[in-house]
Amino acid sequence: MSSNKDSITNVLKVALLVCLVCAIVVSTAAVVLRPVQQENRQLDLRRNILAAAGLLQDGVSVQEQFEQVETRLINLETGEFSDEFDTETFEPRDSIRDPALSKSIPDSEDIAGIGRREQYTEVYLINDSEGQLQTLILPVRGYGLWSTLWGFIALNSDLNTVRGFGFYEHAETPGLGGEVDNPNWKEQFEGKEVYGDQGSVELAVKKGSVNRSNEMEATHMVDGLSGATLTSRGVTSLIQYWLGERGFKPFLTNLEAGEA
């Protein structure tokens, strides 16, 4: 007697075979496409670095434009440049999850809500034809309302005046916290100063509108995002953390003194 092709055993065999074939196809595709995905991520990252520095040009390849950028590794603990890892292969975001390359931040210090801080990270320098620093681009991140905002802040050669600021990844509410992507809002950061006379971080997002007749606000603050108080507060917090003593401040101090 011939076997019943519609039996449960045969159905399970076919289902198992289909699952196996699909798994092989998906795994193969993931392996084959991984280099392309990594290349696209790197390209997007470089595009955002150039955009933060106000150097992104239409009609010119990102790779060509990025040739003017020097990528350097720094040790956040010492505030100095480091050769511990090759910048071509080092992944700062991976190091955040590595207990050997990062540390947990106490709640009392974690104003940016990032949980862990890496020991090493990459910074990006743009020098003039004589090798003098023109622009420094620093990676920043911090929690907003719904997500971690990942971005870059670019400083002029005085290491205090903002040249540009922007985020390349977040999941804030469109039309509210998502307005961190609004070019008009981001432009407000240009020309603002990070540090006050006493060396503390004064750059911040104000709740409401900046009083332009107030020197302190006009110098250090930008308008808040309407209807997005917590996202605005998150942006202020991440700026204060990463430009402060537990972030890049030791490196900036060393760089200014020629000791980095």
Rank of each mutant, 00 (worst) to 15 (best):
S2G: 07
N4M: 05
K5T: 02
D6C: 02
T9C: 01
L12N: 07
A15I: 13
L16G: 15
L16N: 01
L20K: 02
C22T: 08
V25W: 14
V25S: 07
V25R: 03
S27K: 02
S27C: 02
V31D: 06
R34L: 13
Q37A: 02
Q38Y: 03
N40E: 10
Q42T: 10
Q42F: 00
L43D: 07
L45E: 14
R46H: 12
N48S: 09
I49E: 09
L50Y: 11
A53I: 04
A53D: 12
G54R: 05
L55A: 11
L55E: 13
D58E: 14
G59Q: 04
V60M: 06
V62L: 06
V62D: 05
Q63N: 10
E64F: 00
E67K: 14
V69T: 03
E70P: 01
R72H: 08
R72N: 11
L73T: 07
N75F: 09
N75W: 06
E77T: 13
E77P: 00
E80S: 13
F81I: 05
S82K: 03
S82D: 08
D83N: 13
D83A: 08
E84Y: 05
F85Y: 15
F85E: 02
E88I: 01
T89A: 12
E91L: 14
E91D: 15
P92M: 10
D94E: 15
R97C: 00
S104M: 10
E109I: 00
G113E: 06
R116E: 01
R116T: 04
R117I: 13
R117G: 06
E118V: 15
E118L: 09
E118H: 00
Q119R: 15
Q119D: 13
E122L: 14
V123M: 10
N127C: 03
E130M: 11
E130D: 15
G131R: 05
Q132N: 15
T135Y: 06
I137C: 11
L138T: 09
L138Y: 11
V140G: 04
V140D: 02
T148Y: 05
L149P: 01
L149G: 12
W150D: 12
G151I: 01
G151P: 10
F152V: 02
S157F: 01
T161W: 04
V162G: 10
R163Q: 14
R163K: 15
G164V: 06
F165L: 13
F167G: 05
E169W: 00
G177L: 12
D181Y: 06
N184R: 08
N184D: 14
W185H: 03
W185I: 05
Q188T: 00
Q188Y: 07
Q188A: 02
E190A: 13
E190S: 09
G191V: 07
G191N: 09
K192D: 10
Q198M: 12
Q198L: 13
G199S: 08
E202T: 08
V205N: 07
G208Y: 05
S209F: 10
S209A: 11
V210C: 07
R212D: 10
T219R: 15
H220E: 12
M221G: 03
G224V: 01
L225I: 14
S226V: 11
T229S: 12
T229K: 00
R233N: 14
T236S: 15
S237N: 15
S237G: 00
S237D: 13
I239N: 05
Q240R: 15
L243P: 06
E245A: 14
R246I: 05
P250V: 04
F251E: 07
L252Y: 03
L252R: 04
L255N: 03
E256R: 11
G258V: 02
G258C: 05
E259V: 06
E259S: 14
